[in-house]
Amino acid sequence: MSEFLQHLVNMLVLGGTYALLGIGLTLIFGIMNVVNFTHGVLYTFGAYIMFIVVQQLGLNFFIALPVAVLAGWLLGAAIELTLLRPLRGSDIDTTMLVMIGAWIAMQSGTLWIWGGVAKSVTTPFPEAPLVLGPVSVSWLRLFVLAAAAMLILVTYLLINNTSLGRAMRATFQDHDTASLMGVNVDMIYTSTFAIGSSLAAAAGALLGPVYVIFPQMGDLAAVKAFAIVILGGLGNITGAVAGGFILALAEELGAGYVSSGYRDAMGFLIIIAVLIFRPTGLFARAERVG
């Protein structure tokens, strides 16, 4: 029983970060329809910004977090302006190839600047964990969970309760009509991509200090982010959050009670099942087509 409780606690802290990875990608992949292969690199980028600000500049951990989010926003905006804007209207394959190119170029850039050896970031949290009866959890992971929950809430409110969010949804539903209604669609494209990117950077900035930071860290994260988005349904924020927790639960229980060798396979077994039985995602609502 105590083992099961511990697995549930692990699932909560892991699921929070998976959800954060998922909502960033669901904005770009789900709402904008861009197969964003740079999502993982932006995650890595956020983690390296933490490393620069905390370890190299010696600044406070809590200052570094917003810096990383802002840097992710700026890099995302730059990618949209230089790569995606000239390609708007081209087919999905072209965009996909350009994004793969951007992914490889940026990952190689990271390797070139910082080398392949993993870096770690020191945090202000105590090493001794919080112990509650049979379960224990590190303070850093709790902080990451709280920060992720806050970012998810802010994103949710932004999309559903602000005029920017309404303009975003309108633009990607019907680009021309939105434009005729006075929406600045260029601005919407850039800001949506930038917001999604800043969420990826935020996830990297929060998880980099939990794990270690190295140039390929984003690859597995990106694969999981795509899985979460497909699980939750494209463009569905609530779905992405639920998808994050379901993936975490599958991994924890799969590793705990089935076989740890297949831990990363568990999530993908679920994806295969979802694609067979509910191809629009577990939480997809009926959508108007055409």
Binding site: Y211, V212, G254
Partner: peptide, 8 residues
């Protein structure tokens, strides 16, 4: 990077 499940 996360071995919590195995360690639990």
């Amino acid at each position: 990077q996360d071995m919590s499940a195995q360690l639990s």
